[in-house]
Computed example of a mutant assay.
Amino acid sequence: MAQRLLVIEDEPTLARLLSYNLVQEGYEVAHEDHGTTGYDRAVKEHFDLIVLDLMLPGMNGIDILDKLRGQGIRTPIIVLTAKNTEDDVVRGLKSGADDYMTKPFGVSELLARVSAVLRRVSGVTEEAPVTTGTTGSTIILGQLEIYPERYEVTLGGQSINLRPKEFEVLLYLARKPGVVLTRDDLMNAVWGFDYIGGQRTVDVHVSSLRKKLELDPESVHIDSIRGVGYKLVVNKQRTPVV
């Protein structure tokens, strides 16, 4: 059965180009040219991936991302932006995008990114099963408790709301507490070896994680090691962030 993709793009020529080439790759493609209708369709129907323009009438792409992720919808999303600025990239990633592309871009590159993202999620959808109760895979580090099968995290008994990729970054760090992990380590573990995006993606997610861990910074925090990467420190004296 063909994987279903939703393209939310208001430029007619680009939308037709994307839809045509995605269909040629064997995907089933739906298209919406308005932010509000695109959001409604993303909520009501099942899609394996969404290609989302950030500049849309009705509801912009960032608002769509925020609302979808806020409802726990994990459908992979690749955002498109006409502005080649770091701020747009950071906003999209912080809002829960799995990947991004700046216009103009080559269709072949987009197809490669779509394929890579779909391989990474390995069939996990927004309706992924959720288990209840603790399991043998639970990670407890001081006041930090991580439940991998439920994508849940608590710190000092309080729940922390993490986006899927933030959770996966924290989980990878937590499995090797005190060990310095390079950006490449994190990139390959969370996004996959075939991820085309840059290491800035890792930095954005770590920055967001740090803010959410401020609930109890003396218990657990993430330190930067200049030119190398990051490590999760638990119940230890903070080392300088450089």
Rank of each mutant, 00 (worst) to 15 (best):
L111K: 10
R41Q: 14
A112H: 05
A112K: 12
Y39A: 05
T135N: 15
E86A: 15
V90M: 09
E28I: 09
Q71C: 05
G123I: 01
K44R: 13
G70F: 04
M59W: 00
L56P: 02
M101D: 02
R41V: 06
L118D: 07
T13D: 15
H31Y: 11
D33Y: 02
L80Y: 11
P76G: 12
L54Q: 03
V89P: 02
I64W: 03
V43A: 06
K83E: 08
A112T: 10
G123W: 00
V23A: 15
E86G: 06
R74C: 15
G92I: 05
N21V: 09
T37C: 05
D66T: 12
I62H: 03
T81Y: 06
V114P: 01
K67I: 12
A112R: 13
P57L: 01
R74P: 08
P104E: 03
Q24C: 13
L65W: 05
R119K: 13
H31Q: 13
H46R: 09
V130N: 09
T138M: 13
P104K: 06
H31I: 07
L14E: 07
V124I: 13
K44M: 14
L18N: 08
L111T: 06
L54R: 02
S108Q: 12
T102D: 05
T135R: 14
I50F: 01
R113Y: 02
R69A: 05
V121C: 06
S137R: 15
L110V: 05
Y100P: 03
D53C: 02
V107I: 07
A128G: 09
I64Q: 06
D99C: 06
V130Q: 14
P104S: 04
E127H: 07
A82K: 03
P12C: 08
L17V: 14
L22C: 05
R41D: 05
I78S: 15
L49H: 00
D63T: 12
T135S: 15
N60R: 03
L65N: 10
E25C: 07
A97D: 03
A82I: 05
N84R: 14
G136D: 14
R69N: 08
D48M: 00
G133T: 13
Y100D: 04
E127N: 10
L17A: 12
V124M: 14
E28F: 09
K94Q: 15
D88S: 11
V121T: 13
S137C: 14
G136M: 09
E109T: 10
T37F: 04
T138P: 09
